[in-house]
Each structure stands twice: as structure tokens, then as C-alpha cells.
Computed example of a mutant assay.
Amino acid sequence: MHRSSLIFVPALFVPFSLLAAPDAVNVEVLQNKLDHPWSLAFLPDNKGLLLTLRNGQLKHWQAGKGLSDPIAGVPNVWASGQGGLLDVVLAPNFSESRRVWLSYAEVGNDGKAGTAVGYGRLSDDLTRIEGFQVVFRQMPKLSTGNHFGGRLVFDDKGYLFIGLGENNQRPTAQDLDKLQGKVVRLTEDGNVPADNPFVKTSGARPEIWSYGIRNPQGMAMNPWSDTLWLNEHGPRGGDEINIPEKGKNYGWPLATHGINYSGLKIPEAKGEHVEGTEPPLFVWKVSPAVSGMAFYNSSVYPQWKNKLFVGTLKEKAVIVLSVDGNRVSEDGRILEDRDKRIRDVRVGPDGALYVLTDETDGQLLRVSPSGT
């Protein structure tokens, strides 16, 4: 494989004053010239990581070797608006199966698109995905380029959760016969679990786990409670963190802390809190445009223990929150002075944060507390 040069810059120091010492972070640019990177997944045995680019390319990056050519065997994607190649995760049994899961935007016959999910085997030489098969399609296809969601998370029982946007078609988030504005739950082979909440509900999609969600952009398992957490974009105001539980309704568009981009009220909204829907765990009245999120459960940097890191697109920073059970408080922000849209945040096997910036010249950053 062709390898581009590995790119490093001297450490940069960013204010981190609202957190425990140290009061700054080191930032290393590991790779630049990435065209709107969306997600990353770490390979075992110090083999580097996989990166998705929204234009449809999957690449491999490894320290000392740099960035690979595009990995072959990736499905065709609809790279338009917010659509493209989205999340990448490794199967829980990757060491045996070498199975890689991808989510992406897929266009239908009428030109509208939806989120699709599938998997294939990563070749031993890391150059191709073999036998890719689609196991899930968001139906009906309604998106003209907006609100795909696409985050993928496995729990410790091997179930796969998929966060799905409502394609900017607000009422669909409440419709159980549609897969817009939902979290769905599948088995590790892409089948519907028998204990999903709407399996026996006439007219409902059996894949659905929870509903009433607008546009989920970050999703992760809380390592201390073993529960799924999700963040989502509100409209103008009202970005949220939720804990999507079995069969529950998270309100959109009936309940919201936001308004339309026009400044007018959301037509379907009945208030910030609506009976029969779940209130958000945490809400931003002014939308930072949340993105990827990661819980910090490593012992490498004790000052970050029990923190939740959430990227932002509009505010171009990483928000740092403290987590105490199901109580969340905002501590501060890092990377603000870089003026880069943050698309994804992950904790690496070395205990550092790995951050992707959403730019035509996107970057892979390694972030650690200063003085370490």
C-alpha cells in the first residue's frame, strides 16, 4: 500500500482551566489532509486504526507508517449533504472474525436516501473488506441530505445499537412503522432480537429499541452503569444527552427545548416536557452542535477519570463533562483555539484522546494532559 508521510507538529497548549490540574492539554497532529473524516476504530495489537471519510473511503493509519490508500470492498455510498460513509466499529469478536461494521448513506430509486449498515471481513493485510453484506436499511428512504445519524455501538452482550436521524422529517420520529428518529437494536449477525420491545406490536418495526429522537451524532456505552448514552442535535437550541431505554419515547418533535431555525416554534411541539415522553438527561439551551462522544475510563490519566468528552461542530471545541451516576455537569472546553469543527472523539488504547476534525483538510489529533 502507498503510505503518505506521517505528520507531527510541536505540542500546542490549549486552556483547560476549569478542570483539575494540569490546566492545559498537549495536541499532536498525527495526520492531516483528510477529507471530512467521520469516525475511527482502533485495531488490536498496536496495528493502528481505521478511518472513515465521508466521501466513501475507508483508510488505515498506523504510527510510523502513515495513511494507506483506500481500502477496497467498501459499499458505494451516497456522499451528499450530511450523507456519506459514516461510522466504523469492530465486532466484539474481531480477533477471531475480523468483522468490520460500517454505516453509510444509501440512495434509493427516487433519489432519496437512508442509513444502511453492514459488515465484511478485513483482510489480513488490511487492504480490503471481503464479502461485505448489508443487514439493515432505514426505511422508508426519506432523506434529501439531512439527519442520517449512523452511530454504531455494541454492548457487552454483543447487541448492536444504531442511532438513526429523522431525515429532517419531524413527525416520523413518533411513527413506529418507520425507522426515522429511532435507536434500533440488532444481534451481532444483524437479526432482530426476540426481546426487542415492539416485536409483537402490530404495524411497528421490530428493530426499534427507542424512539422520538431527532438527529443522534454521538453514542457510547457508559462503562460505569453499562447503559447506552446518546447525544443528539436539537433544532435551534436544545441539544441533548439521553439514555435510550427499551421501548421509551424521547419526545421529538412533541417535546423540545429548541425552536425552528426560522425563529418560530416547532409546529408539533407541546412544550419542553410532555407527559409520556422522557426528559433529557442533560440539555444545552444554546446548541453547540454535538458530535462524537467518549467516556474516560482509563487509568492512564487519573485527572480525566469519570469524564465524558463530547465534540462540537458549531462551537468547534470538545466539551468536558463530569459524570456521577446519571448526573452530568459541564466542566469546561478544550481545543477551542484551533477553530476546527470536531466530528469524533475516542479514547485510545494508550489512554489519550483521539479527535477528528470535520474539514476538507481534516486532522487526526492525539490529545493528552500537559506535563505527561
Rank of each mutant, 00 (worst) to 15 (best):
V283S: 13
P279I: 02
W304P: 00
D155A: 05
L85V: 09
N93K: 12
I259G: 01
R54A: 09
N215R: 06
N46I: 08
T172S: 09
M221C: 14
V100A: 09
D69G: 14
M293I: 11
K307A: 02
A173L: 02
G48E: 07
V283G: 11
S287D: 01
S95Q: 15
G311V: 00
Q57M: 08
P253W: 07
W38L: 07
Q174W: 02
R338A: 01
R333Y: 00
T172L: 12
N32F: 06
H273R: 15
K112E: 14
E96L: 11
V183K: 12
G73Q: 10
L85E: 04
V117R: 13
A220D: 15
S202N: 04
G325L: 11
P193M: 10
L19F: 04
L58G: 11
K157T: 13
I241L: 13
F154V: 05
F42V: 11
A11F: 02
H233N: 13
A20D: 13
Q217L: 13
V134F: 11
T52E: 04
P37A: 05
G165C: 06
K307C: 08
N306F: 02
V192K: 11
L313Q: 00
P22C: 05
H36A: 08
G203E: 03
F148N: 07
S322V: 02
H233P: 01
M219F: 06
Y119W: 13
F16A: 00
L40H: 06
R327D: 15
L40A: 05
P349F: 07
D226M: 14
M221Q: 15
N222Q: 14
L365M: 03
Q180V: 05
W209T: 14
Q174M: 02
K265M: 13
M219A: 11
F282I: 10
L53Y: 12
H36M: 12
Y159M: 11
E275C: 01
R98D: 14
D35M: 11
H36P: 06
E207M: 09
K33T: 13
H2L: 02
G131V: 12
L356G: 03
Q169G: 00
V27W: 00
V74N: 06
K157M: 13
V9F: 08
L85K: 11
V367A: 08
N76G: 04
L19N: 03
P302T: 00
T144C: 01
Y301G: 04
Y261G: 14
V153A: 12
I342V: 11
V345R: 01
K248P: 03
A173I: 01
L126H: 13
Y261K: 15
E272C: 04
S299Q: 15
Y159W: 12
H2P: 00
P216R: 09
S17P: 00
D177M: 02
A317S: 01
S370M: 12
N306T: 05
S210V: 13
G212I: 06
G351R: 04
T312C: 01
E96M: 03
I319T: 04
